[in-house]
Amino acid sequence: MSKKVTQSNKTYQIRPSFKDKFRPAEAKEKIEKILREKLKNAQYSSSELPQWTREIADQTKSELKALGKDKRYKYLVQVIIGHNSGQGVRVGSRCFWDEDTDDCTYVTYMNDSIFCLVVAFAVYLY
């Protein structure tokens, strides 16, 4: 029965199916892996950081797409990297969206020299 529905073009579906829903935990794992690979023993260098931020953002985006969730999901990614020198940083976020379909996840990575935060949002397009 369910096969029939997925094969048809007209499903009139306005919500992702349970299987295709964005799962923050799943995405978190993927992002953690990227950060571990990219920033292992990384030292602060002002020339390389801008490139790293962009690379991490792009990789995160493509990993999220590769999760193979519902095709109508939009992904928003923000990466913050800074020099870890004991200064205070506070990041907060608030969203105005559909609690049921949309979700967000974040990953932090820290070593003696730098800290990195990745925030990813998945927003469903009806």
Binding site: P50, K65, V77, Q78, V79, I80, I81, G82, Q87
Partner: peptide
């Protein structure tokens, strides 16, 4: 972020 002369980089992408 506290301004202690350190650098902070951010990048945002979206699909």
């Amino acid at each position: 972020a506290e301004n202690k002369g350190t650098v902070l980089h951010t990048a945002a992408t979206a699909y």
